[in-house]
Simulated assay, not measured.
Amino acid sequence: MELMDGEIQEMLQDEEMREQFIERMIDQYNQQILWLAYTYVKDHALAEEITQDVFLTCYHKIDTFRNDSSIQTWLYRITVNKCKDQLRKKKIRSFLTFENHKQDNLAVEENHPESITFQSMEDQVLSERVLALPTKFKEVIFMHYFEDMKIREIADVLSVKVNTVKTRLNRGRKMLKSMYEEESE
């Protein structure tokens, strides 16, 4: 969903087009933004509030979008900033169990109750472990593995160097691996 400069100008002039564009963005990115916000604040209601605020900000600030990056990257940047602001304000420390996320990876016998239960438990354990990571590792793991973002895109979203993203991914993976190894001992 890339925009050309002319399209942005046209949208700014036509309120109905602006609303339709925002609705398309909500349909396309709502779940990703919600999940990203949740990885920061670990509170579903607060993550929903942040998600709404992201799209409201987008609606009001679409004229500031310079098309230097994708809309998705721009939305992620807004989300990260809003989450960091929220954490600074409230110093959230609560940890909630992550609700069962995407079930794309279900075993072949996806309708088999044992298979669904087992995959659900594995997903929950992985989610809890990712959420337990320090924020700087959790955010790159989420963006890279759950959102399939390229390292360059992550660097743009977080305003850090590509090598910083690579280092954080590597350290985050090592932390997750050690969590699994500790459990098996």
Rank of each mutant, 00 (worst) to 15 (best):
E7S: 11
E19N: 11
L87F: 02
M179D: 07
F118G: 07
M17S: 15
Q28G: 05
D63K: 12
T167C: 04
M1Y: 07
R93N: 11
K150T: 10
N170F: 14
M121P: 02
K102C: 12
C58H: 03
M121W: 05
F118L: 11
S178F: 09
N111F: 12
N111P: 06
L169W: 07
M121Q: 06
I50R: 02
D68E: 08
L131D: 04
F142L: 03
T51S: 04
V162Y: 08
K150G: 09
I22M: 02
F137I: 05
K177D: 11
E182C: 04
A45T: 13
Q32R: 15
C58T: 14
D14I: 12
M179Q: 06
R18H: 13
A37Y: 01
K84G: 03
R88N: 14
N30S: 15
E99H: 13
E10Y: 13
N163H: 08
E185T: 14
T97S: 05
I151A: 02
V130I: 14
Q124Y: 02
D43A: 04
K166Q: 14
L3R: 09
V80E: 01
L169H: 08
K136F: 13
I22C: 02
R171C: 04
E153F: 00
Y40W: 02
L56P: 08
W35V: 14
